[in-house]
Amino acid sequence: MSQKINLKLKVWRQKNTSSSGNFETYKVTTDTDASFLEMLDVVNEELIVSGKEPIAFDHDCREGICGMCGAVVNGQPHGPQRKTTLCQLHMRKFKDGDSIVLEPFRARAMPVVKDLVVDRSAFDRVVQAGGYVSVKTGGVPDANAIAISKENSDLAMDAAQCIGCSACVAACPNASAMLFVSAKVSHLALLPQGQPERHSRAKQMVMQMDKEGFGNCSNEYECEAACPKGISVSNIARMNRDYLKAGLS
């Protein structure tokens, strides 16, 4: 059953990329059936009515699939519930009187745009480096021309589920994007369509990742724990093998 709870929020406020930010404190009363973003909506409506600027945060689908939302909640990207995006986190996970500290996903490669909004355009550039199969529209074989084992197809789908939210980067002590990059590399490496460009893809994408200023992987596995889609770190090992082969060939 739903109930009302009172919370104290400490939220990172930053006007734009070049300004320095600080924490502001807000009190909010929320329904436990509300989602985390709906709780923020309530805070924002109150701020707007009193002529103050609302807290900027990215969001769109509010269904956990577009990857637009995200913030660090009490030190955890997307908050305390495993395999759950911020928009799908519901207030029943909190207790009356709780304090919540809210910060943007921080990384050198992802500067803050405003408040909780960050610039993740580096992810698009990493995909541009090779995260595709180079086929054009038209002139492709019948979809059932190649059989793909259900097992591989399922594994590819596990990796392909990545929503590009960048929680993995925010969770990593080195701000590495290895989980994100390896999910795309694995998805295509597990399918016959991805074979012709398999090794060059791994190499190009990793090089771009480095160029963007993401850190190295030191096997902390914080990324997997923070991933709202449960993408496995085994993808990183698979990518490393492909990357090494690309170096040798």
């Binding site: 595709y132 199969v133 086929v135 529209t137 038209g138 492709v140 074989p141 019948d142 979809a143 059932n144 059989a147 793909i148 084992s149 259900k150 197809s153 590819a156 789908m157 392909a160 998805h187 295509l188 399918l191 369509q193 991805g194």
Partner: peptide, 22 residues
């Protein structure tokens, strides 16, 4: 029908049966 062919060629992991077909 062309759409499905196109998407498979891009690597869209549609659900498959045990025999490996869609």
């Amino acid at each position: 029908c062309n759409i499905i062919d196109q998407c498979v060629a891009q690597g869209v992991p549609f659900a498959r049966e045990y025999g490996g077909l869609l």
